[in-house]
Design a protein around this nucleic acid. Sequence first.
DNA 1: ACCTGAACACCGTTCAAGT
DNA 2: ACCTGAACACCGTTCAAGT
Lengths: 231, 231
Amino acid sequence: MSDEQDGLDLDESGPGRVTVSAAAGRRTPRGTLSRQVLLDSAREIVDIGGVTALSMRALGARLGVDPTAIYRHFQNKNELLDALADLMIRGEGGLPATGDPVADLRESLRQLRRQLLRYPTLAPSVLRQPPGTGSWWDRMEQAVGALRAGGRSEAEAAAVWQTLLFFVVGHALVEARHLAENLATDRVGAPMPTVNPPRSRYPELAAAAPFLHADLDDQFETGLDSILGSR
Amino acid sequence: MSDEQDGLDLDESGPGRVTVSAAAGRRTPRGTLSRQVLLDSAREIVDIGGVTALSMRALGARLGVDPTAIYRHFQNKNELLDALADLMIRGEGGLPATGDPVADLRESLRQLRRQLLRYPTLAPSVLRQPPGTGSWWDRMEQAVGALRAGGRSEAEAAAVWQTLLFFVVGHALVEARHLAENLATDRVGAPMPTVNPPRSRYPELAAAAPFLHADLDDQFETGLDSILGSR
DNA sequence: ACCTGAACACCGTTCAAGT
DNA sequence: ACCTGAACACCGTTCAAGT
């Protein structure tokens, strides 16, 4: 177990830094570099070492290409990160469409959560794409439709959608931290460490503490219930 | 107006980088460095240039001290950022206590929101302090108490608290972006740019779009309503 | 005890030069 | 047209040395 503080990105930092380079030997021949190839490699790097392992230099090294060649395809690193966030927001395999709008909405949010848990260190980039961005349109159209069908006004539907979004991303961030800590301490699947405030000063909190870190799948569904009002 | 992409931290980056140093001339005499002094200066730097302007070197320069002297008081930069986040979470001037638990809870969340809007680039650090951390205890005790008083079970109270937390932080992040964009384009106080999806493919979204960027104060209250169920 | 200064191993990005 | 390589202006952090 290391004594270093993880960043929001859950990456190793400092001396024990995770480095991902792999194919430093082979050279990618001319003309093969493209947004697609770069995004694939970038996602691999993030998959292995988290977003802090993704540097222009590391990405270049992985593809056997000079780091500065990347700037032919992305204006800067931020644009690359936004493109990765876009992939997560759009998802793979399309949105659920069973015919039940509310069920589809819930499943869409579960899908988003799964994506976020697979690439937890990209969550900040995802949260940076404002809710009105094109990447969100498909998911949002579905959500607003479901909420309107449930009898909500357009104004209410818009507000509830934003609330749902923040909840899903925030929840995934906390769960990702939990997973990372248990991986680090070899206690995968262990329950979350219980909050332990002094009962004398924090009676209410102490009583609620055991429930704070209940099963996170259940908690996610409960959260959806409380926002969607189907409690 | 610049064409560069802002980070989550809303800072300038790249060539037009914001730098904050000021007192590069005077030297702080020996023995005057402390966590308190460092935190105050760090907050000033973040206030002026955002969190990306805060480097160990910049902080040292501002205090007329070698950057590495900081490591006497904070193990590393992460610990310094956590301490700054702590200040935001705890707030200044104490929690509201009018006697009405639900009103106090709402006011406490508004207080947190105001803090986040004053130092928006610290929001990621705030979100990184897990909900069970000591910094949250006072606010959480109050929240859980109010929710229990409102008739909720301990499990429900814990879940609703987390939902509220994610909502407040996420909402502040979006609003901070909005403020930063309007500052950059000299349109302070202007309404948010309307989402404009093609109406043919996104009929529901197009109809709800005008409400998506309604007054953010109202939207915040509406969001609280929808989570707290007093709709 | 507390701070300095050089050093190490990194960054993102620009720009002239090569093929 | 596309990629390279040197260069610039930065990082966080360590460690031996100074006061």
